[in-house]
Computed example of a mutant assay.
Amino acid sequence: MTTLPSGPAAGTDRGVGPLLRAWREQRRVSQLDLALRAGSSARHISFVETGRSRPSEEMVLRLAEHLDVPVRERNALLLAAGYAPRYPETPLDDPALDALRAGMERLIQGYEPYPALVVDALYDVHAANRGVLMLLDGIPGHLLEPPLNAMRLTLHPEGLAPRIVNLPEWRGHLLAQMERQIALRRSEALRRLYEEVAAYPVPEGVPGDAAAEDPVAYFALPMRIEHEGRVLSFTSSIATFNTPMDVTVAELAVETLLPADPATVKYLQSLSS
Rank of each mutant, 00 (worst) to 15 (best):
P8V: 11
A10Y: 02
T12H: 09
D13Q: 15
V16H: 07
L19S: 00
L20H: 07
Q31A: 00
D33V: 02
T50K: 13
S56T: 06
S56A: 03
E58P: 06
R62D: 00
L63Y: 13
D68P: 12
E73W: 07
E73I: 07
L77W: 15
P85V: 09
P85L: 12
Y87S: 04
T90A: 00
P91R: 05
L92W: 11
D93T: 14
P95Q: 06
L97H: 13
A102Q: 15
G103R: 09
Y111P: 10
V118P: 01
V119Y: 13
Y123P: 05
V125T: 01
A127C: 07
A128Y: 03
L136M: 14
L136S: 08
G141H: 10
E145V: 01
A150G: 11
P162E: 15
R163K: 14
N166H: 12
L167A: 09
W170F: 11
A176N: 15
R186G: 14
E188V: 04
E188L: 05
R191H: 04
E196T: 09
Y200N: 02
P203F: 07
P215H: 03
P222I: 01
I225M: 06
L232R: 05
S237T: 07
S237L: 05
A239P: 01
T240V: 01
A250Y: 13
E255M: 06
E255P: 08
T256I: 09
P262Y: 10
L268Q: 00
L268W: 05
Q269E: 15
S270N: 05
